[in-house]
Design a protein around this nucleic acid. Structure first.
Length: 319
DNA sequence: CGTCTTTGACCTGCGC
DNA sequence: GCGCAGGTCAAAGACG
């Protein structure tokens, strides 16, 4: 795969075995900092300073809100500063973010890689804007079309500002199912074949009105049992109470009140992406993620607060 | 009937 | 300018 480094740029953190696995919890972070429309992660400030990081705990919310830098995460997760690459904001260089190979010969710190998280922090975007303008355009097209049924699209009227992306957050989950339940309702709006991957990428959008959160789901072509989920944006609402896919109400109550969790829906959503498959599948008695001990799974069940979850993992990781 | 998925067409951004 | 790949739209169909 070294033949197409550029194409693999985005995939590296996930598809490359070097993706960081933080402890036997199987988390890994990688920043996706895309100034490009998507896969390209380019220019970003130089790696932040670790010195500013004090608290041993932080939440993904912090991370996502940008109040936390990647290296801070590194620290928080018990990674040595030298492994800061794991959280490098995927800037100009095409080096895979999660170069946690330092931590383990094969990129595994300990245990079997199970689910890994890849954090992505980017400039806040105005994607809604772009999609709106697109809609606008197409609406106009419809008018101009005269209603002949053909799908013609007009040329863009204005040169829209450079497209900006919402903060993104990607992570990997070992799962048999592609679309993992996370408590939110998603509508699939597209599917595309991905270059260099036999598996298509699915595009989902939060069905809640005014919520522009999207997520992409694809399977790792290197490890078909691994699902790569990339969230984009943050939920501006709580998790729907009536969940079609609430794993039969298996989500802890805390997840239903994200507002009390001190942050947007992102973090818990993130974790339930991971927890749900475990919950669902393990409940069915047919699947236990490799490398995840029942104890760890228990943590997912018992901890509702992200802040609680993260530290617990960190602690386990501490020497 | 409402919701969701599928799917082909179209748009955008980028590299050459 | 062209071609490619990723991302999005929206009609049509499936499903409960």
């Amino acid at each position: 795969m070294s033949d197409e480094p550029r194409d693999l740029y985005y995939h590296d953190p996930f598809h490359d075995d070097r993706h960081g696995i933080i402890g036997n919890t199987g988390f890994s972070f990688s920043a996706i900092n895309d100034s490009k429309a998507d896969s390209s992660m380019t220019a970003a400030p130089s790696p932040p300073n670790l010195q500013g990081f004090d608290p041993p705990y932080m939440s993904f919310t912090d991370c996502l809100n940008g109040s936390l830098d990647y290296n801070s995460l590194t620290t928080a997760f018990g990674l040595s500063p030298s492994s800061s690459e794991a959280f490098s904001p995927v800037e100009g260089n095409h080096k895979p973010v999660a170069n946690l190979g330092d931590l383990g010969a094969s990129g595994e710190i300990a245990g079997t890689p199970n689910s890994s998280i890849s954090s992505s922090s980017t400039e806040a975007g105005a994607e809604e804007d772009s999609s709106k303008s697109k809609k606008d355009r197409q609406a106009k097209v419809s008018e101009l079309d005269g209603g002949d049924g053909s799908k013609k699209v007009n040329k863009p009227k204005k040169k829209a500002e450079k497209r900006q992306r919402e903060p993104r957050f990607a992570f990997m989950t070992k799962s048999e199912v592609d679309h993992l339940e996370d408590g939110y309702r998603w509508r699939k709006y597209g599917q595309k074949a991905v270059k260099n991957s036999p598996f298509p990428r699915s595009y989902y959008r939060c069905t809640t009105q005014k919520c522009t959160v999207k997520k992409r789901v694809e399977r790792s072509y290197q490890d078909p049992s691994t699902v790569i989920t990339t969230y984009e944006g943050q939920h501006n609402h709580q998790i729907p109470v009536t969940l079609r896919g609430n794993a039969g109400g298996m989500l802890p109550p805390s997840v239903l009140t994200p507002g009390q969790m001190g942050g947007p829906g992102f973090p818990q959503e993130l974790f339930f992406q991971m927890a749900s498959p475990m919950t669902n599948l393990s409940a069915a008695g047919s699947f236990y993620p490799q490398g995840l001990t029942p104890f760890q799974q228990l943590q997912f069940h018992d901890y509702g607060l992200l802040q609680d979850v993260v530290p617990s993992m960190i602690h386990k990781q501490e020497p």
